[in-house]
Design a protein around this nucleic acid. Structure first.
Length: 444
RNA sequence: GCUGAGGUAGCCUAGCCCGGGAAGGCGCCAGCCUUGAAAGCUGGUGGCGGCAACGCCACGGGAGUUCAAAUCUCCCCCUCAGCGCCA
């Protein structure tokens, strides 16, 4: 949603933005017409209510002076009430239609966003090579992981279904090390760490733009109006929903490590092999509440904060400036960071760094006041993955195969793994493994 | 889950029993005063519409009664306390 005032004052800008996005959206003129209608209705209702109030006050004054209530006036006011009620119903219908329509409109892309029809026209900002000497033919994680028994997708599918997995032994420890490494890095960059709720109300899901459009992408609980957070962006951004922040609070930087849940309906095939696309994953998320004047400077800072992670791990990566045709509705500008997975020979999106401007703050009512006497203004919200774990794990496992069948621990992570230099295999457990020529270390 | 007490502007509070233009304080802003500041005094400090004067809306949300609802009735949400259950 762009703010209603933008649509009123600059409908042409919105039209142009929509055209650039190369996707179908509701008609801007229809919205403007609807809005005009609402305002006319509001004016009419307003006048009627003024008349009613004036009469009712006279009646109240008369009664206070000791007189009786005039039956004729009373009846007249009763009729007026019914007229007003009918008009109010029309107004309410008009406004709810307008507001529902408004929620469907995308944010206006920033001038520095390249124009393009779809993802193929995203612009590479930079590509950075790996600093790791990987063996000639590294195995993909979905081969190496099960071989070392640090990743178990079969039992994940048994327990929860397709798209769920277990990390085992040093696999789990590597992920926890990455998480702690990222949390510490971001903390040093000035982030306040939060452990947020991950069951989310519909109001909060609407506030960040997950609803109404992406309801089918999220999991919802059966007995309560609660959704499983698809990203920590939702609780983090809603932290200050319906609040007025102080000008001196900004920029406000918060982060959280949480599991994320996505239905990923319809996403099957080669790309889902392994853990590159799953229903539940962990992520460290960064959210910034920023003064509108500095949100684009802050976007670059945020990008560098996410980039610092992949850089420290020596991974090959590239950064895209998403073109208008690929830009998410809620974003005015968005960078994607992709990691190279040498085993699977694929690029994997591991972080999305966006400036939403006031898209979320208008929906969620997050404002700030420059001074106590000033009017509250909407903040700009930014977020960035810092970063998503499964794809980071994939890139680390595949890149750090410095000897055949072995995974080295990146030096920056060793403090979090007791100084360990390589991941150790986990013993196999159970009779099912015997048939595959595998057996646990304790067997026989 | 049960019982009770609550939810009023950025914050704190009065009004509710007994229906009739939401009072006051704090904080903040401006003006006056002052060499400057503080204190003091005056005014302003929720949203929408309007150039304006002004009008309307807003007392957790929704419905109802009534000429008229912060106030009465019903439903729902949330907070706190006690009890119950529970990792």
């Amino acid at each position: 949603m762009s703010a209603l005032s933008t649509i009123r004052s600059r409908p042409e800008d919105l039209k142009r933005a929509i055209a650039l996005r190369n996707k179908p959206y509701p008609d801007v003129d229809a919205l403007v017409t609807l809005d005009t209608e609402c305002r006319q209705l509001a004016g009419a209702v307003n006048a009627l209510r003024a008349k009613r109030n004036e009469q009712a006050h006279k009646l109240a004054d008369a009664k206070k002076a000791g007189g009786a209530v005039d039956a004729a006036v009373s009846r007249e006011l009763g009729e007026l009430r019914d007229t007003i009620a009918a008009d109010e119903a029309k107004l309410q219908k008009c406004e709810s239609e307008r507001d529902a329509l408004l929620l469907l409109f995308p944010q206006i892309p920033h001038p520095t966003v390249p124009v393009g029809k779809d993802g193929t026209e995203n612009v590479v900002v930079r590509e950075v090579p790996s600093t790791v000497r990987t063996i000639p033919e590294p195995k993909p994680h979905f081969v190496l992981g099960p071989e070392l028994n640090i990743l178990d997708t079969e039992r994940g599918a048994k327990v929860s279904g397709e798209g769920f997995y277990f990390l085992v032994g040093d696999g789990a420890r590597l992920e926890m090390a990455l998480i702690t490494f990222m949390r510490e890095t971001h903390r040093k960059a000035g982030y306040t760490e939060l452990l947020p709720p991950i069951l989310i109300s519909s109001a909060s899901m609407t506030g960040t733009g997950q609803l109404p459009k992406f309801a089918e992408d999220s999991y919802k609980t059966v007995l309560d109006d609660l959704w499983l957070a698809p990203t920590a962006e939702v609780p983090l951004t809603n932290l200050y929903r319906d609040e007025v922040l102080l000008g001196t609070d900004l920029p406000l930087k918060v982060m959280a490590f949480t599991p994320c849940f996505r239905r990923e309906a319809g996403g099957h095939g080669v790309e889902t092999r392994g853990i590159a696309r799953v229903h539940q994953f962990n992520k460290v998320e960064l959210v910034n509440f920023v003064h509108p004047n500095s949100s684009y400077d802050q976007l670059e800072t945020l990008l560098s904060e996410a980039e610092a992670i992949v850089q420290a791990l020596g991974l090959r990566y590239r950064i895209f400036n998403l073109c208008t045709g690929d830009l998410p509705d809620k974003a005015a500008k968005c960078y994607d960071i992709e990691l190279w997975a040498p085993g699977a020979a694929r690029w994997l999106e591991v972080s999305s760094v966006s400036n939403f401007e006031d898209y979320q703050s208008t929906r969620a009512g997050i404002r700030y006041r420059e001074t106590q006497a000033a009017k509250p203004e909407f903040v700009h919200t930014l977020n960035g993955s810092g970063t998503a774990l499964p794809r980071l794990m994939v890139a680390v496992m595949e890149t750090w195969q410095t000897s055949p069948g072995r995974i080295e621990v990146p030096p920056v992570l060793r403090p979090y793994l007791g100084g360990q230099t390589h991941l150790e295999p986990t013993p196999f457990v159970g009779e099912r493994e015997l048939g595959r020529g595998r057996r646990g270390w304790n067997a026989g």
